[in-house]
Design a protein around this nucleic acid. Structure first.
Length: 225
DNA sequence: GCCCAGGAGCCCG
DNA sequence: CGGGCTCATGGG
């Protein structure tokens, strides 16, 4: 069922080509971040987009680029108040400024080269130890920056698949993630594309007020009628 | 004006 | 452990 829904979404929306922002080619899956700077951009972006529209987060990422702040040392040097000003468009800018500096500190202590060698479980725990990185942000970083196979769960994932009837809305993050891990092959590319498609589908049809009538997967869905 | 967006932390019972 | 609150901008 999960695989069928994936196929349907992919056929309809096409590959989403998520991350990073400043890539040259667009839509097809570009293979993900190639340079360390691109990885950094994904990591910072994962924080900036927390509970925020991608449009607003993207503006902040562009601003970070413009100010040469996609850089661990410069991120550590800049004063939090000044940083907050730069990322204003992403909302929660005071909190996020601290969060960005927190990740930068982690990356200073544990460079990407080192993190890449860790097994996923340890990597995840390390990321979760940072203030401002919760489960979804940690997994987004693991999947989209380090390109290791973890399934990212967000409010959209819960919304769509609880409506479909495959999961209970009240199950917690790790529980929902285990469900997807148990049903799908642990394939980085699949997880990458699936999560992006889920986001796209939630925006187009599976909104808070769902548009079931024209939904492209309503034949799979329990809530649709 | 209201609602929502690719969450996380903290507090409270 | 679950529920409610705070953080904040910009677009519909």
């Amino acid at each position: 069922m999960l695989k069928q829904i994936y196929g349907r979404l992919l056929a309809e929306y096409g590959a989403q080509g998520w991350w990073p922002v400043t890539k040259k080619e667009k839509p097809e899956y570009s293979g993900g971040p190639k340079t360390e700077k691109q990885q950094l951009e994904v990591i910072f972006g994962a924080i900036l987009t927390q509970n925020t529209s991608w449009k607003n987060a993207e503006k902040a990422i562009i601003e970070l680029n413009r100010r040469r702040l996609i850089d661990i040392d410069r991120m550590l040097e800049i004063h939090a108040d000044k940083l907050a000003l730069a990322i204003k468009s992403s909302g929660y800018f005071n909190q996020k400024a601290k969060k960005l500096k927190n990740v930068a500190a982690l990356l200073k202590k544990h460079p990407l080269k080192e993190l890449e060698k860790l097994e996923i479980k340890k990597l995840r725990l390390l990321l979760l130890s940072v203030e401002g990185i919760g489960p979804e942000t940690a997994d987004s970083i693991i999947l989209y920056a380090l390109r290791k196979p973890v399934f990212v769960v967000d409010t959209y994932t819960k919304r769509i698949f609880s409506r479909v009837g495959l999961i209970d809305k009240k199950r917690d993050y790790d529980d929902v993630q285990r469900f997807f891990h148990s049903k799908l092959k642990k394939d980085e590319k699949l997880f990458n594309e699936y999560h992006a498609l889920i986001v796209e589908h939630a925006k187009r049809y599976c909104r808070k007020e769902p548009l079931c009538k024209n939904c492209i997967v309503n034949s799979f869905c329990k809530a649709a009628k």
